[in-house]
Simulated assay, not measured.
Amino acid sequence: MLVKISRYALASFLILSSCNNQDTTTYKVGENSFVVPNIFLEKEQIPWLPPIGRNSFIVSIPSEDKKISFKASIEDRKDNCTVEKIRSKSMKNDACEGVTMPLSNETINSMKREGNETYWVYKYKIGSIEKIAASCSLLRSDEGLCVSIIPYKNTIVTIYYSDNNQDNIYNSRKTVTSSLARWDNAPH
């Protein structure tokens, strides 16, 4: 019995180690390692997104219903959470401190939009403290581009999506964090 297990284990190891999986790319972002399917990677720089670097990558992830997709940049928290790079009471500051909006329908339903036609934010409350869930700017006459910044382990994730409804805040965070969890190559 011991010999059969050893042969089986050896055969499995040889099969797995001989596979050359060119369908994924591994990124080391700070202390995190992600094995990302290439179909989700943005290979070329997008002008309004942060530069793709050795400690970052950009993905485009379809929503669960496949009707829209979210772009997200994943960057090292240590590189982005310096005094020079963050303002207090900002989404980035909250992400650097590990604060994130609770993912619940109650939070989404209690959010309010503030601003004007060209720039607005979505705010929510944790207790008596008001936080920004997303900031948006007019992109075209009928659509805004929104940005939401959240922590994921030791990274800062900036999510970009169109502002056609408030549910995108919830859906984008849920979709992106579940994808990152699947791609996270951390030992479990």
Rank of each mutant, 00 (worst) to 15 (best):
L2V: 10
L2N: 15
K4D: 12
I5N: 13
I5D: 14
A11C: 08
S17N: 10
S17V: 11
C19N: 11
C19L: 14
N20A: 14
N21Y: 11
N21D: 14
T24P: 04
T26C: 06
Y27P: 03
E31S: 13
N32D: 05
N32V: 04
N32I: 09
N32T: 06
S33T: 15
V35R: 13
V35E: 13
P37M: 03
N38H: 00
N38R: 07
E42T: 10
E42R: 09
K43V: 14
K43M: 12
I46P: 07
I46A: 02
I46L: 04
W48K: 15
W48S: 15
P50H: 07
P50L: 01
P50F: 10
P51T: 08
G53T: 11
G53P: 00
R54C: 03
N55V: 01
S56H: 05
F57I: 06
I58G: 04
I58N: 08
V59F: 02
S60I: 09
K66F: 00
S69A: 12
I74F: 02
E75S: 11
R77A: 09
R77M: 09
K78I: 08
D79S: 15
D79N: 13
N80E: 14
T82N: 04
V83N: 12
V83A: 15
R87D: 15
S88D: 12
S88Q: 14
S88M: 15
K92R: 04
K92H: 04
D94L: 00
D94C: 01
D94P: 01
A95Y: 07
M101R: 03
P102N: 06
L103W: 02
L103T: 02
S104T: 14
N105I: 10
T107K: 11
S110F: 06
M111S: 01
R113N: 04
G115L: 04
G115M: 05
G115W: 03
N116L: 00
T118W: 13
Y119S: 12
Y119R: 12
V121A: 03
Y122T: 00
K123C: 09
I126M: 13
I126H: 02
K131P: 00
I132N: 01
A134M: 03
S135M: 06
S135T: 07
C136W: 08
C136N: 01
L138N: 00
L138M: 15
L139K: 10
R140S: 15
S141D: 10
E143K: 06
E143H: 01
E143A: 06
G144K: 01
C146H: 05
V147W: 08
S148Q: 08
I149H: 01
P151D: 01
P151Q: 02
T158C: 04
T158F: 00
I159T: 03
N164Y: 11
N165P: 03
N165A: 02
Q166M: 13
Q166P: 11
N168S: 05
I169L: 09
I169M: 05
N171E: 12
N171L: 15
K174G: 05
V176D: 09
T177A: 06
S178N: 11
S178Y: 00
L180K: 06
R182M: 11
R182L: 14
N185M: 09
N185E: 12
A186P: 02
P187F: 14
P187A: 14
